[in-house]
Amino acid sequence: MTPIKAHESPVSENGAASGFNSNLPVLVIRPSHGWVSLKLRDLWEYRELLYFLTWRDIKVRYKQTVIGAAWAIIQPFFTMVIFTLFFGRLAMIPSEGVPYPVFSYTALLPWTFFAQAMNQSANSVVVSAHLITKVYFPRLVIPLSSTLSPLVDFAIAFMVLIGMMFFYHIYPTSAVLWLPAFLMLALAASFGVGLWLSAMNVRYRDVGHTIPFLTQLWLFATPVIYPSSLLPGPWRIILGLNPMTGVVEGFRWSLLGIGDAPGGMIWASVGISLSLVATGMIYFNRMEKTFADVV
């Protein structure tokens, strides 16, 4: 039994260095200062956890509901019906030559995805407090899985769009090949926003209260109900600073063949989305180390 004095290391500097077995992975734990690396390799190591968490979110979403995954259709579909009645019929908002239901539903698809992904990922870290305080894994996995899981709802709701396009005899051109790119843009936008909001939410729970309101405002700032052509040219670039503008316009262009081919507005959206992801990752990583103490 040896009493240990403070500042006394049981092993001398040399002893510590030579005593280690070299073929084992070495993990060094020390306080991090300044800019830390994004630890993307760590994220890759934990890709299976990302898969399992996404799978859990999907599995659990419609447990103990009567109509189950039909909820994925009901939300955008009935929103479309209401939009058609109020904005299409009553307010006579132009829809660039395609029937208003298809016009709005095509936009509602990526919008619903974005809103869901943003909502879920913003709360994801706080909701996962029990994991964060007990187990180590790259925290980035949490908002990422919350961004990915609404993709399933998106896929289900997409089936309805295919049905509607058949119904209205609208057939896509080769531009539809661009659709995955716009979906990626939607993913990037929601992931970027989700990163910022989820990390902020850990410290400032105000974020949680802001989100329903933010979602509503954002919907009107996005050309879901109206076409962006309603606005004069220069204003469209400003509209494009909202990353979802590029996504919605891109969806309409690639699926319905309306609107302009990707131009300045969409590039603005791409730029904004990518910078949201980049800055979001940096912010998230900087906050990450305090999550377990603060959440």
Binding site: F20, P25, V26, L27, V28, I29, R30, P31
Partner: peptide
């Protein structure tokens, strides 16, 4: 940690 370091092999 706030200070110090640890190595895990």
């Amino acid at each position: 940690p706030t200070e110090g370091y640890a190595e895990i092999h």
